Amino acid sequence: MAAKKSTTDTSAAVPPARAAAPGDLAVRAGEDPWTEEEVAEARAGLLADAERLRTEISSAEKALSGLMRDSGDGAGDDQADTGTKNVTREHEMALATNAREVLYQTERALRRLQSGTYGLCENCGNPIGKARMQAFPRATLCVDCKQRQERRF
């Protein structure tokens, strides 16, 4: 499995303006083209998700910082206290890692939306489907390619 890119500095990760026209975005046969309103809704949802995720990451990092600071002050702790602190720290680390990955995917979707590749399968190049993109705006694979990927793992 390929290493995942970390997103520590996200200030310049998302271009400010849209380059592709809504009608240029990929749709499957039989689907209506993307409208200006649908594209605006997708963009607004992704931007809101990105902001929420940045807030979650910041909170998790603050909590982790506090847990790391307190971990050295274990005088008098029994094994259960130490174990609880370790589990809590690992849980916060997992939450922060997951939020960073979803933020990366969200910013990637915004870049794809801007470049006009939003809705195209990164594996086969076929349209993912507008309905799928509206349900899961960070999708990068069509249903067939996603199923093949999941069978491999």
Rank of each mutant, 00 (worst) to 15 (best):
L103F: 06
A44C: 11
P15I: 01
C142Q: 04
R18G: 00
A139G: 03
A29L: 14
Q134R: 13
V14W: 12
Q134S: 09
K85C: 00
E122L: 06
K146I: 01
Q149I: 05
A17H: 08
R151A: 11
A109M: 00
A80P: 01
Q147H: 12
V39Q: 13
E61V: 03
V102P: 00
E90I: 02
M133S: 06
P137L: 03
D78C: 09
L110N: 04
R89F: 07
Q149M: 14
T35D: 05
L64H: 07
D49I: 01
A109P: 00
E101V: 10
E41R: 04
L47A: 11
L25Y: 01
R54H: 03
C121A: 02
S59I: 04
A80I: 05
R148K: 14
F153A: 12
A2P: 15
V143N: 08
A29S: 14
G116A: 10
E61D: 13
R111C: 08
T10G: 14
P16D: 11
A60L: 11
S6R: 15
Q105D: 07
V102C: 00
P16G: 07
A26C: 12
D9W: 11
E61S: 09
P22K: 10
A109Q: 00
G72V: 10
Q114V: 11
T106D: 03
A75H: 08
R89T: 09
T84A: 15
E90A: 14
A29Y: 10
L95C: 01
E37Y: 06
E92V: 04
N123F: 06
L46N: 02
K5T: 00
A21R: 13
M1C: 02
V39L: 15
E51I: 03
T7Y: 14
E37H: 10
I57R: 02
E107R: 12
P33R: 12
P127G: 08
A21I: 01
Y104G: 12
N126F: 03
G23D: 13
Q134W: 04
L110H: 05
V87S: 02
G119I: 05
R112G: 04
E107I: 04
T88D: 08
G45A: 04
R148C: 09
Q147Y: 06
E41K: 03
T55D: 15
I128M: 13
A13C: 08
V102Q: 01
D78Y: 06
R151F: 03
A13M: 10
A3E: 02
F136E: 05
C145K: 09
R69F: 11
L113W: 03
A20V: 03
C124Q: 09
T82N: 14
E90H: 10
A94E: 13
G66P: 10
E37L: 14
A139T: 03
R18Q: 03
E41D: 10
A12R: 09
T117L: 13
V27W: 14
